[in-house]
Design a protein around this nucleic acid. Structure first.
Lengths: 144, 144
DNA sequence: CGATACTTGATTAAGTCACTCAACAATTAG
DNA sequence: CTAATTGTTGAGTGACTTAATCAAGTATCG
């Protein structure tokens, strides 16, 4: 049940980008310094976010990264799925990346007790993360 | 955000033990067959559960494993913590195994936005798993 | 005693995590 | 144009974890 460093860094990087949304582009070095993230690792995270269509980048001396979607339209759930994969604790209860479990002894999957509990867990996690936007995130501790 | 095979197998093994709680001891081979778990791997899981005080075992021809705590006193949360470690997505929001994050840029930890969201996630997960007993689990899909 | 079952510790193959490096491409300042 | 700066891409690496597997025990029952 762990969040990877990759996702954690990704969220913190997006926090910086949210804070200067609509104002300026930021360079990875600035993000890395402010958020204590190794630059080269941050690199691939930003790349992944770019491929996913969340950020845009420009090269050259005045280059850097910018958010290209409004921070109130991006949820933490989306970001974590991009970087870490499905939120569900096991594949057979994932709604975005379902995968049947090969060794489940229950022919009728709906009868599997593991599936039952983990389904609730998945829903609880998704309920929070899919309704928590980058804007909420940037508001930090001030918001419930 | 994943549940390990170890925990999944552990829960399924405890399910079998719950079903014959107070009736008979079960041998690991029976558990392994019914739940499609590799015997040798199951071995170490049962050992861990024994060290944790959940099950007892006896050797010899009529040996096997038994639950030694009532199934309504054991929660899935406890089991998963034994086998997988803390439920919290990151160490700095764990209540049973707190660990401060070394690279957090927020001097005042309470101000860290990551900590804030992940705290809610932890609570949501724990709320479910710490109130779900082996009895509930064995009742399977019949219960909400 | 001998078959059966749990116990313990070592080992291991494969995969993942968290980085790191090097070579390259594009942009801009001078 | 050229040099400096920045992003791009892909490969590589060491530490660690996961999911087993193996072998050599020890206890119990018949």
């Amino acid at each position: 049940m762990k969040l990877s460093k990759k996702s954690e860094y990704g969220l913190r990087a997006l926090l910086e980008l949210t804070l200067s949304y609509g104002k300026a582009t930021i360079q990875r070095r600035q993000i890395a310094e402010r958020q204590h993230i190794p630059v080269e690792f941050l690199e691939q995270i930003l790349l992944a976010l770019k491929r996913a269509g969340l950020v845009a980048s420009s090269r050259g001396m005045k280059g850097g990264y910018t958010l290209i979607k409004s921070p109130d339209e991006i949820t933490l759930g989306q970001v974590i799925r991009m970087l870490d994969g499905p939120l569900a604790p096991i594949g057979c209860v994932s709604k975005t990346a379902y995968q049947k479990c090969g060794d489940c002894p229950y022919a009728d999957h709906a009868q599997c007790p593991v599936q039952h509990v983990m389904g609730s867990v998945r829903d609880a996690i998704a309920d929070i993360l899919d309704h928590y936007t980058l804007d909420d995130f940037a508001a930090g501790h001030q918001k419930g």
